[in-house]
Design a protein around this nucleic acid. Sequence first.
DNA 1: GTATAACTGATGCTACCACT
DNA 2: AGTGGTAGCATCAGTTATAC
Length: 366
Amino acid sequence: MTIESSPSLFDIAPSLAMEGEDRTPLLPVRHPNQDLFICDVLDAIPKDDMASMEHPVFSLSTKPDTRMRRYEHNGNIIEIIPSGKGLATIHDKDILIYCISQLVAKMNHGEQPGRTLRLQAYDMLVATNRQTSGAGYRLLTDALTRLRGTTVRTNIQTGGIEETRIFGLIEEARITRKTFDGRMLDLEITLSEWVYRSVISKNVLTLHRDYFRLRKPFERRMYELARKHCGMKDEWKIGLELLQKKCGSNSPLRVFRSLVKKVCAHDTSHAHFPDYAITMADDIILFRNRLSLNTKADVIVPVRDAPYIDPETMHDAKTVAPGYDIYALHDEWVSWWHDMGKPELKSPAGAFIGFCKKRHERSPIR
DNA sequence: GTATAACTGATGCTACCACT
DNA sequence: AGTGGTAGCATCAGTTATAC
């Protein structure tokens, strides 16, 4: 899998303020302009076709989930063993996503980052759209405990030799606290070899900025799946039962169905789901790429009709045009490209960077 | 800007209930 | 017996007021 660029959909999926009774409100945006990446950790397992299957590693439940999960495929086994504190939840994954994004950002600057990251707890909380209260920090330590405690065991058979690997999602976390005034927490997280390798080999996908604003855990999981399977394609279909499996939901199918139904209904009326529109009919869930929907054909340009801009370039664009919403700039640039009659570009990346640079020089945002 | 406590509200899952 | 709905549980998330 390779990196894909993330389109901006703020125009079609507007942030919704609180409203009326029927709502699954998106959480408020606390920290704009942050690029976030995700890596499907299981993709990092070498030499087997299991990597292409998704197995839910993270719990959707809010209650501690201490059940072991076991997946078997062609004689290969993956087991996910929670600690006494329970399986890492999809919210705990936020922390991983943040760490991964930090790594990718460093790599995009040409650095070769190590496995250990040093962070300010506050930055992380803000970036992952969490509260920065005492509870926020307490939850952070709980989350790190769960990440550390969740064990993954795999056996991979290649050429008659069986290799078993046992590891956690993170290797170590250290929290340093200045107690005299109770402020400032330093955080040191060592990623597991597994996650690290996945990032280094760029098995990452960009996430929509609204990902962290999805409140329902299984909604987040659905987005991840759609991101991975639908990607830039027009649409992607999946049966309810399989979706539940891939989500890792433990509810009975009928309860899961009603949950999905609610999400679909809300998306139809409010278009809150990032990047993709979801509908369900006869237990088939259909994800349609919003960019292809042409709901606002005069404003939104279908993505397949735009020069490809890779995430690195998007990142560079941010540095040449600081303060700008680069996704909005990208949209603008694509419309300009259409207005020009879609000229063939020798280097779309260079052209886009040039566009951003010019914009910044003309009217810099202070 | 950073941190806390106390409160309100939302979550997935389970157990239970009412119906064919 | 099978189906679908939902109240309640343990937990997490958001808001407000307050402090430095």
